[in-house]
Design a protein around this nucleic acid. Structure first.
Length: 792
DNA sequence: CACTTGGAGGTGACCAACGT
DNA sequence: ACGTTGGTCACCTCCAAGTG
């Protein structure tokens, strides 16, 4: 009985200085017996008996709730509230905690009688000192334990094992969110509460340490966390081979105990389970879809899934796992690929696993069209839909890496705007401003090859007239279906006819591997497209000669090719976009959108505000004297017109760089989201023709004319940045989508009988060279870029 | 020292379309 | 039916610097 009494008193204290309804007492009693194992019958009579014992305790108060109180506990007024009240000359706000209106004779009256008389206002509470001792674990009055902090602690304690979110805390205390953050920080510093992340709105919740330490569920989470950490450490020193084996044998039931959203709060726990799952999976790889369920989360909500995804992203950033795309084994969905998670730094990626590159392949410059033109084309294609910057920005080839685009988000007052630099200029800026290079972003851009020349695969050029003629003749056949069939047959390497083209061009096998026929005019159905893509893929697999041994399926290339087939003749189809369509901006007709977010900051006229677009709206405010500002002075430059410009610029730059670092990470995350397991042949970095057997790169070194012209941009091996379309001598061309270049006669075959392995090109003397159809092997293009290929 | 405030940065709900 | 995706927006977290 003593234990029961003790339990009830403690629970009373946890309910705060305003106590609780008397009915809670029965809850306390039931809770006690539910954990004690006793089969005590808890009925009204027993509760009344316990009540009589509890109220006799000297620390227990019985009273009624003051009618002015609506909150669970007494909420200490903020200093600002007191100040405002003083400023208005109002009655000073109560700064002493409100207490119950005590009932002096309550201890001598039966519970039922009190309930009849006072109804729902009847409260039972512990006295202040015992409450303080119960929820802080001490009688010592911490300096940090201000009334506001104490109020917050009481609300958190009332939340028991579930705690409250920081947002809820703000709602219940009516304190500002920023103030709540501060209050929670104080409590965290005092080690009285634990702040835990979770998904959904209110991404943190706060639990009193008493419950966090004693709750079996939290204890289980911590235990698993510790185990995961231990395993992780052991793995780091490579001493767990036996353990891995042991886990591998435990594949099917992996022994994942059921988890819920709380478990997701623990990243080590999530990591431990994912690692365990991946280690037990073939090639340390597992389908990412619905992984949360496999890990023991039976019925995750959308929020849970999002939060789990966020956790996975964190693990990817930590380098624990990586995303890979694996072709689906299902026959019906042959083209589709499956997104998987795979352990990083594991060597178990067997050859039988075919991993495809991500849908987003970096690099996509057309080497024969100016950047401006390409951007213009892409925007034109986008039409009224427009494009986001993410889709617009593409990294240049390595030798032009310094001309890549560095984007920053800067703010000027309330305006947020992007500012763009070249990579080289950005680095100069970072250098000049002494910014932290590790966080400024773009530090990973490789500029080692800047100033050099584009390396072009010699295999991409024709060797003789016959090859060129064969290639040109191939365009006469515009029956896509027939071509697809031929292509397929060719892939089977047993058919005459067009297969001859392939056989006659063994040295161009790599060029051929993209196996696309550019002249298909009939627009196939969706299935047709897929089929065509599939056949192209078959072609490609068979014809890859110089590539690594691993079997690989490049889905991206298939798409590129299939869609390029269509794009050659018909108007490029606008790819169906996923996601919500972008809001069309039509200022002339669209009504003014409802303003969201924080209302505009009101600035005094004396502050300048030369660039305030809504100055008119401020007129009313300007009439009234601006209240004396508290807090840090605004960094608004308009208000500091006398400041040194350079200081402002520096400050601005620093802020921009801070922001940039984050943007850079985001971009990195976006672009590097899916790892390419096998070296993708579509990437620009793979353009180096460093096959020793094939000879030198198609580079011009030491030629003063070329070097000079490169500087001037008139003609060079950096054609992506040169405007002239056909006046270049060396001009990698995407022939599959534009034949006019041939018609113009500028692209003829090279006299390559003796130059193929050692092409030496000069500006004036060298005969123009033609490229094979596989522009991808020379100029990797993303599908969307191929679709928009239009040479002017 | 306790609290407030401005501001930068971060997150996730929502939406709509599409894929499976 | 349910999951995925990308854009948008509101809300949230956190820090630094100020006031009293």
């Amino acid at each position: 009985m003593d234990e029961l009494l003790h339990h009830c008193l403690r629970e009373l204290a946890f309910d705060g200085d305003l106590g609780c309804d008397v009915s809670r007492l029965s809850d306390f009693i039931k809770d006690f017996y539910s954990h004690s194992g006793s089969d005590q019958k808890v009925d009204d009579a027993f509760c009344a008996f316990v009540w009589s014992l509890v109220v006799q305790q000297p620390t227990v108060l019985v009273g009624t709730l003051p009618p002015t109180i609506t909150s669970e506990v007494w909420i200490a007024p903020q200093v600002s509230a007191k100040r405002k009240a003083n400023a208005k000359g109002e009655e000073h706000i109560l700064t002493e905690p409100l207490v119950l209106n005590l009932l002096p004779d309550a201890k001598s009256r039966p519970l039922a009688e009190l309930q009849r008389e006072y109804g729902s206002t009847l409260r039972i509470a512990a006295d202040r000192d015992s409450i303080y001792a119960a929820i802080t674990g001490t009688h010592i009055r911490f300096s940090k334990m201000s009334p506001m902090v104490y109020s917050a602690l009481q609300i958190i304690t009332r939340g028991r094992v579930d705690g409250v979110t920081v947002v809820q805390l703000g709602q219940r205390t009516k304190y500002d969110q920023k103030t709540c953050f501060y209050l929670v920080k104080q409590l965290t510093d005092l080690n009285l509460v634990v702040k835990v992340r979770r998904g959904g709105v209110g991404t943190h919740f706060v639990i009193h340490r008493y419950f966090f330490d004693r709750s079996p569920s939290w204890k289980a989470i911590r235990d698993e966390e510790v185990r995961a950490e231990v395993i992780s450490r052991n793995t780091d020193v490579s001493t767990v081979e036996g353990q891995e084996d042991e886990e591998t044998t435990d594949v099917s039931p992996l022994g994942f105990t059921p988890i819920d959203s709380r478990h997701l709060s623990s990243l080590p726990l999530v990591r431990g389970r994912i690692v365990k799952l991946l280690k037990a999976s073939t090639n340390n790889m597992h389908v990412s879809n619905n992984m949360i369920v496999i890990l023991g989360f039976a019925h995750p909500t959308k929020t849970d899934r999002r939060f789990f995804h966020r956790r996975v992203q964190e693990l990817i950033q930590q380098g624990v796992v990586e995303k890979v795309l694996v072709p689906s084994k299902k026959k019906k969905t042959k083209v589709a690929s499956v997104l998987c998670l795979r352990l990083v730094n594991e060597n178990a990626g067997g050859d039988e696993i075919v991993v495809v590159p991500p849908t987003e392949v970096q690099g996509g410059f057309k080497l024969n069209v100016s950047v401006h033109k390409q951007i213009s084309d892409m925007l034109e294609e986008a039409g009224t839909t427009g494009m986001t910057l993410t889709h617009l920005v593409m990294p240049p080839p390595p030798h032009l890496g310094d001309l890549g685009v560095a984007a920053l988000l800067e703010t000027s007052g309330r305006e947020r705007r992007h500012r763009y630099f070249t990579i080289s200029a950005y680095r100069t800026l970072v250098e000049r401003e002494n910014l932290d290079k590790s966080t400024a972003g773009y530090s990973d851009v490789d500029l080692s090859n800047v100033g050099g020349f584009l390396s072009v695969d010699p295999g991409g050029f024709y060797r003789n007239d016959e090859e060129l003629h064969q290639y040109q003749d191939s365009f006469k056949d515009d029956d896509s279906i027939k071509l697809a069939k031929v292509s397929k047959k060719s892939a089977e390497s047993s058919v005459a006819g067009r297969k001859g083209l392939k056989q006659k061009l063994p040295v161009n096998a790599e060029a051929e591997d993209n196996g696309i026929d550019p002249q298909s005019s009939a627009k196939p159905s969706r299935r047709g497209k897929r089929k065509a893509a599939g056949t192209a893929s078959a072609n490609q697999e068979d014809s890859i000669e110089p590539r690594p041994q691993k079997k690989r399926k490049i889905e991206n290339a298939e798409n590129v090719e299939a869609e390029a087939q269509i794009g050659a003749i018909v108007e490029p189809p606008v790819p169906k976009k996923r996601g919500r369509p972008r809001k069309t901006v039509d200022n002339s007709t669209a009504p003014a959108p409802k303003k969201r977010g924080r209302p505009p900051k009101v600035r005094a006229k004396s502050n300048g505000g030369e660039d305030e677009p809504d100055a008119g709206e401020k007129s009313d405010d300007a009439e009234t004297a601006p209240p004396k500002k508290r807090g840090r002075k605004s960094k608004n430059y308009a208000a500091n017109v006398n400041d040194d410009d350079t200081d402002k610029a520096r400050d601005s730059t620093k802020r921009r760089s801070t922001r940039k670092s984050v943007e850079g990470e985001e971009e990195q995350e976006r672009q590097g989201d899916v790892q390419i397991v096998d070296e993708p042949q579509l990437h620009g970095d793979n353009l180096q023709a460093d096959n020793p057997q094939k000879g030198n790169h198609l580079e011009v070194e030491g030629d003063p004319d070329i070097s000079r012209s490169r500087q001037s941009g008139a003609m060079s091996t950096q054609p992506a940045y040169v405007d002239g379309d056909v006046d270049m001598v060396v001009q990698p061309v995407n022939i599959q989508t534009d034949q006019r270049l041939f018609d113009d006669g500028n692209l003829t075959q090279a006299d390559s009988s003796n130059t193929r392995d050692g092409l030496s090109i000069t500006q004036a003397s060298q005969e123009p060279l033609g490229l094979h159809e596989n522009s991808e092997s020379v100029c990797p293009l993303q599908p969307r870029y191929l679709l928009s290929l239009k040479l002017c």
